[in-house]
């Protein structure tokens, strides 16, 4: 019973689908951020697995840059979220309707 590349890719797909479900069903913006973290982690698993089975270090490099992007996304996103919460007292997506057309 050997673990192949397909095992890891299927696992990454399952985690990605869980993150996608989270993005679809969440209204709270903080919960939406959690779902995007799950999406990024699923791709990281896929990159590391491909890097191992092909024997190439490029996959791990891309995973490092994805981690850096996730860290900066959290810093900026949480800053904006705190400012918005201070102004309105809510962080629900449906109530961010200040730009009415």
């Amino acid at each position: 019973m050997e673990i192949t590349l397909t095992h890891y890719l299927v696992l990454a797909t399952v985690l990605f689908a869980i993150g996608l479900i989270g993005v679809m069903r969440r209204k709270n913006l903080l919960m939406l951020f959690f779902a995007t973290e799950i999406l990024l982690n699923a791709t990281n698993i896929a990159f590391a697995a491909i890097s191992h089975y092909i024997g190439d270090l490029s996959g791990q490099m891309f995973a490092f840059f994805i981690i850096a992007i996730a860290a900066s996304e959290v810093a900026v996103g949480l800053g904006l979220l705190i400012v918005w919460y201070k102004r309105t007292g809510k962080i629900d997506l449906d109530q961010m309707t200040s730009m009415r057309g």
Partner: peptide
């Protein structure tokens, strides 16, 4: 998968920094 450095970075950055920030 043999990516030891990536695993350490995952623990330090994600569970250390990102989760603490959340």
């Amino acid at each position: 998968l043999g990516a030891d450095f990536l695993g350490a970075i995952q623990i330090i950055v994600y569970t250390g920094a990102v989760m603490a920030l959340y």
